[in-house]
């Protein structure tokens, strides 16, 4: 009958109206400043620098100022100046560190290329989106100190990715240690051999006369 479709439509809207009062699941919006949105794990916006130790962020930056990210960055929003001296990194190895590491977030396009090219897993994507400021220039230029965030923070925002990175770093470190151990062992063996060789070779010293 003519008009039943209209009544059906009215029924649908009435159901939504009543439903929105007793079923919070229906809500398509959240009341933002009070209720924070639950971001998906893969959400990313701007990069940050990973530090090993939250207590000493500047001393334990993973970044070794190799400047690959600076060169690869398509909008060229990264500016790095190498240090003149070397400092021990987390594993105690002497490394160059970034004396200046700036990211201009007004230029950054969140492409994640810096993260993908970094061979040291030192730069990762952050999830902080409340970065509005009243200053267009200085407040949007993030310094080394603002960019440095501990590894534990990285693990809290991207758990799966961070676990994988940590596993790889641990494996690398272990491999490096084993290599070092093997090298040390080989060196020791070589030294031993070198020490033993004169003694063993002594009887054969006179060359056969030909």
């Amino acid at each position: 009958m003519l008009g039943t479709g209209l009544l059906k439509g009215l029924g649908v809207t009435a159901k939504n109206f009543v439903g929105s009062y007793h079923d919070p699941e229906r809500y398509t919006t959240i009341e933002y400043p009070e209720v924070k949105p639950k971001l998906p794990e893969a959400y990313r916006n701007f990069p940050f620098l990973v530090t090993e130790n939250a207590m000493d962020p500047m001393g334990t930056l993973r970044c070794v100022a190799c400047q690959i990210c600076e060169k690869e960055c398509p909008p060229q929003c990264i500016y790095i100046e190498k240090s003149k001296d070397k400092k021990p990194d987390a594993s105690g190895k002497m490394q160059i560190y970034p004396a200046i590491f700036d990211i201009d977030t007004s230029v950054c396009m969140s492409c994640q290329i810096c993260v993908e090219v970094c061979p040291f897993d030192a730069i990762k994507m952050d999830q902080v989106f409340e970065i509005a400021t009243t200053d267009r220039y200085d407040a949007l230029l993030l310094r080394r100190e603002q960019l440095a965030k501990p590894n534990s923070y990285y693990q809290s925002i991207h758990p799966t990715e961070a676990a994988e990175v940590d596993g790889r770093l641990a494996a690398d470190r272990k491999a490096a240690e084993e290599k070092a151990k093997a090298a040390a062992a080989a060196k020791a063996a070589a030294a031993k051999a070198a020490a033993a060789a004169p003694a063993a070779e002594a009887p054969k010293t006179p060359p056969p006369a030909a």
Binding site: T13, N16, F17, G19, S20, Y21, Y27, T28, T29, E31
Partner: peptide
């Protein structure tokens, strides 16, 4: 408010 509720959002509050 009612339009909001029908569209499953709270409306001006």
């Amino acid at each position: 408010k009612i339009l909001g509720r029908v569209q499953n959002r709270p409306g001006p509050n």
